[in-house]
Every structure is written in C-alpha cells, then in structure tokens.
Design a protein around this nucleic acid. Structure first.
Lengths: 319, 319
DNA sequence: GCAAACAATGATATCGATAACTTGATATCG
DNA sequence: CGATATCAAGTTATCGATATCATTGTTTGC
C-alpha cells in the first residue's frame, strides 16, 4: 500500500480510504488510486486488515460430517443449507470457514466473528462445546426450553401434526413412526405426531431406527412384519427411510397406498421421482440457510436476534 | 499476550515461544506459561499471527453449487470430496475457506494460502478465472494436455474402458452412452468407452443429456424408444441417470439385464440399494479429497506436485 | 583461570492496514 | 474582513503476534 501511495503521490492513508471508496477522498484522487491499484494488480492484505479491525469477516460453519452411511453424507440437507448460508454471507461481504466436527480445529474457529452450527448433536453436546468460545452462535435444529443461544429450524412439531392429521382424515387407525428420537428435531416430529393422534384416541407404534438409510427403512418394515404388528400407515423421518419402507412393503405383498399409507420427510427430489412418487413433509432449506446467516450477522453486529421456526408443509403425492 | 507475560513475570516473546513449545525456552517456564494460558482462557489472535507469518493457514475450496436440480446438489460427490479435503487439511493445521462460484468473493479467496477447485467448469472457465490469483492451485477433474496446474481426478478414461470391456465380454453389440461430454471428465469416459469398443468394431450411440438427474435418464430412454433405436446396453454417466434409464426400460417392458444391460457411474449407496442393485463404476472420493489436500499443501510449502489420477473399478451387480 | 560455547531471556523492529487526531487550504457568512 | 465551516490530505499510534539480534549468566575445555 505504501508503494501505491508513492506511485499516486499521496499518503498511505489516502490510498486506504480511496480503496474503501470513502467520501473523505476527492473523487478524482479516488478513482486515480483505484485505477493504479488495478493496473499494478494490488491485493489488499486481509490479515492486516482483520488485525486492525478486530474482525475477520468470517463465519465458522460447523457441520457434522461423518464418513459413514449416515444421512449427512448424501441427503440434500447439508449442501442446501450451506448453499443458502453461503449465498447470504458472501453477499454481505463475509466468508464461510467450513469446519467438520472431528479434530478440535478450535484454533481456526475462534478466529471467526460468529458460529453457525448445523446439527445440535445427539444430546446437545456440540452446542455446549462451541458455546464456550463465547462467539455469537446460531444453531440449526430444534428449540428446547432454556436454550441460551439462537435456534433456527423448521417447525418439526407442526410437520408431525400435519402427518397425523392426514392419517386420521383418511381413516388410518394404526400408524407407525420410524426414526431416531434422540435427535431433538426428530423428537419434535414424534411429539407433534403423537399429540395430534392422541386427540383422536390413536396411539402410534414407535419403530426406533438410528440410521436414516434406505436399508434401515427396509429393515424396520421387515421387523414389523416379523412380529406380526398391525399397521396401516407409516410416518418415516426421512425420504430414504420411507422409500426403504415402501420397498419392503411391496416385497411383502402390501399395496401402497391402499393397504398402507407412507409419508416421508424432507421432500427430496429423489422422493418426488420415486415410484410411486412419495408423499413427504417439505422444509425449505435454502431459506433456512439464509435465515441462519442473517441471524448470526445480526448478532455479530450487536443487534438482537430471536429464534425462529420455518413453516413446513405436507406434500401429498401417491403414497 | 502482554498480560500473560506480566502474570508469568517474563517477556511477551518468551510467552510466544512457550506457547509454540519452542525448545529455546526452559521446560519449566514453558509449562508454567502454558498452564497460566489455560487457566486464564488465553486465546491466540489468529489475524496477528497470520499477518506476521504471512500465512493464513487456510485453503480456499471453490465449489460449483448452483441452486438448481443439477447433480452437485444432491449427489454424494461434493460432500465426500469435501470430507476428505477437510479431514486432511485440519490434521495438518489448516482450515477450509468454502467459496461458491457466484459473487466474486475474490477478496476472501486471495487471503488463502492455496486454492482447491472442485469442478473445472464446463469449458475450463473456472480454472482460468482462479489461475489469475497466482496462488498454488489444485483442480479436481480431468487432465487435459497443456494444463499448467495440478489436476487430481479419477481415471475416467479407464472407467469408460472397463464398461466397454464388460459390454463386449457379455456379447453386447449396440451400446448407448448417456451424458454430457462438455464436462471434461465425462468426455474422458466417453473416449475410453468409444476407443475400447472400436477395437471390437462396435460403435456406440451417444445420447447427449445435460442434466444428471433421474428424470433426465427416463427421458433419454423414452427418446431412444421413440426413434426406434436398436440398443442392448446403456452406459450412463451417473447412478441417477442409470436409475432413471432402468425405470423407463421397465415401463417400456424391457427386462434388465437380460434385454438391456445398464451400468452407472459413482457407485453411490443409493444405486447399490436400488432394485435391481445397480452395476456402477466406483471412484474413491474420500481418497481423492485427501489427495487434493496433500497436493496443495505440498505446493504451498514450495515442494513440487504432480497431477495424479485415481484408479476406478467396475462393480458388477445385477444390471 | 580465561576464552569459548551454550542456555535462557529480552529489546526492538516489523508484518500491512486503519482510526483518531491534526493540518492546511478554500468557501461561506454576518 | 475576520471568524468559522467545509474539504482534502497527512501524522502518528495501534491492532497482536514473531524474527532478528543482543544480552546475561553458566558451563566447558585446555
């Protein structure tokens, strides 16, 4: 920057101001400096700027990304959220520091101005871990009472309710829930589902399955059939589970949806083009990501931010 | 750090050295300082360190992430690569700056020590754009002659060859290729496929399809059938395309694999649990990500790095 | 017993930008 | 016409760490 200053015949500070497009600098000097900078391929040193401003203009996004067959690997979920986040942050001049929850890369995270946590972890453990950093933090997931941090998520409870309403309205009396209620989000879905059914004196069967995979869905239905359970509808906590369930039902000679109704969750493109096209609860991830980003930015700039739940809608297709 | 120095009764520089575990500092002072730092929750200022060291310990990873129905959104592809990259980088003390190719977030990228580019762009445009930054760069994709930068990818040509060999060996004479050869990687697959078939005097039919979606696969087969093309085998450039193709074939009354053999690409978990289980060309993304990371790091540290292609294997299942 | 080697620590300058304050020149007003 | 605003640019200090060179005491070797 000093070199540029010499070239332009002004002082460093004027260059700094000119490049920041500050009105403190005469418009002619300003453009002259900017052009010189472009010609000579001048690149601002971001570290120096960060040091002086005590801001890194960076938000750490922490993703649970296990190299397993768990959902995070190949559901649209994380990427779509990330897309929304990244879109909103870059347009605000921030960048995304991607961190996976494995080694303690805390050193890097603490340089960020704020934290977005995708997935609370099975028992809020992730939340507690990163809360210690003392940075503005926004979490994607379910809101539980007494949370100190801001939570953005979709209205899982309402998702569960809407499926229950649907099942009741088409006369189903023996519903099954497939999923892992250790995840706070899933627990919410289950509660909504159970509560709404209870209003109609229906009690669902809980098939606990930890994985969100297709084969896990297949397995759940086989297990139901083995123990001769009576059921006429299935609410699965992901589209993959639902697709697995349908496959198993078909194999066992059941008709979908005449014998058994099935509803999935996430409304993934894959589910929509499944045969038969899957009914599913839709949540808007893109929007969710953008909201997450806006909330952290608000916190970073010292403004208040409230937790918020995005609406969910039941998309009824052929199952 | 100055405060810590006062607390410990030493100078700043000794604290700095102690925290870096430098042998220049007496082992007792060193541990004393480290303990004080822990007690008082001291956090190193990363920006200051970066400024002084002229290193950000950050690698920019640039992903093409369009909010469309394009493959990148819900194939396992980017996330698995990212997983490998992130794993390798964090364990080397680097962090990942995630950038999507949309707004020119060049300001942030230029702070990185190196760049990993996922996807060359349809006509190498992305490569050229980021080459200008003058940073060490490694690209995931296909190697074309005269590339100045390091390319890591899987051996797409061999992938194509292995499918051709398979088709020939089971007596197929009328193969179809479905995909978009504008992507350099896809072009390689096509060339390998065509060349190997040519050695047996077989000429495949090219069904150009730009999208990598399931419905695109359905559509390709419908189109083949409409124009009454004669074919007995299909090589689709992604598992989704292959699954779409199979669905269309079944709808049209063809038997898979007795009438028509189908092979996909990527060996995704989804394909493996498809009905019938999909034959597919496997490439190891996790490994690819790690390799990308290792190569940039080598470049960043001034060591040479060569382009490298990972092996692919044809996994024959039921199609 | 004294020079040389070594170990432990410190003083200072530096990385590259920007905030806060200051200076000088010109414009505006009663 | 002098006092004050306004504008444009410059001076200096600062963000928090670390490299370089300097200093002090201690040990070793002949």
């Amino acid at each position: 920057m000093a070199d540029l200053a010499d070239l332009a015949g002004v002082s460093k500070i004027t260059v700094s101001r000119a490049l920041a497009d500050s009105p403190l600098v005469n418009i002619r000097t300003r453009t002259r400096v900017q052009e010189l900078a472009r010609e000579h391929g001048y690149k601002l040193n971001v570290s120096a700027r960060n040091l002086r401003l005590r801001r890194s203009h960076t938000i750490a996004v922490i993703v649970e990304m296990k190299p397993s067959s768990d959902r995070t690997m190949w559901d649209p979920y994380p990427l779509t959220l990330l897309g929304g986040i990244s879109q909103e942050l870059t347009s605000a001049g921030y960048s995304v520091l991607l961190t996976t929850r494995q080694g303690s890369s805390a050193a890097a995270v603490q340089a960020a101005d704020g934290v977005i946590l995708l997935g609370q972890g099975v028992r809020q453990d992730a939340v507690r871990l990163y809360d210690k950093l003392g940075l503005p933090m926004v979490v994607w997931g379910a809101k539980s009472v007494g949370d100190s941090h801001v939570v953005v998520g979709s209205d899982n409870r309402h998702g569960g309710i809407s499926v229950a309403e649907r099942f009741v309205s088409i006369g189903r009396r023996h519903p099954v829930f497939i999923g892992n209620p250790d995840h706070p989000e899933i627990a919410e879905r289950l509660h909504g589902f159970v509560d709404e059914l209870a209003r109609h004196n229906v009690k669902p069967l809980l098939m606990r399955r930890d994985e969100f995979t297709l084969s896990s869905g297949v397995d759940a239905v086989h297990s139901l059939s083995r123990r001769k359970a009576r059921f006429d509808s299935i609410f699965a906590c992901s589209d993959l589970l639902a697709m697995g369930a349908i496959r198993a039902l078909v194999e066992l000679g059941h008709q979908v949806p005449s014998d058994v109704s099935v509803v999935g969750y996430d409304d993934s493109p894959l589910g929509a083009s499944f045969l038969p096209p899957l009914s599913s609860v839709r949540q808007n991830w893109q929007e969710g990501g953008m909201l997450l980003a806006r909330k952290v930015l608000a916190l970073v700039e010292g403004q208040p931010a409230e937790s918020e739940m995005l609406p969910t809608t039941l998309v009824v297709r052929a199952t």
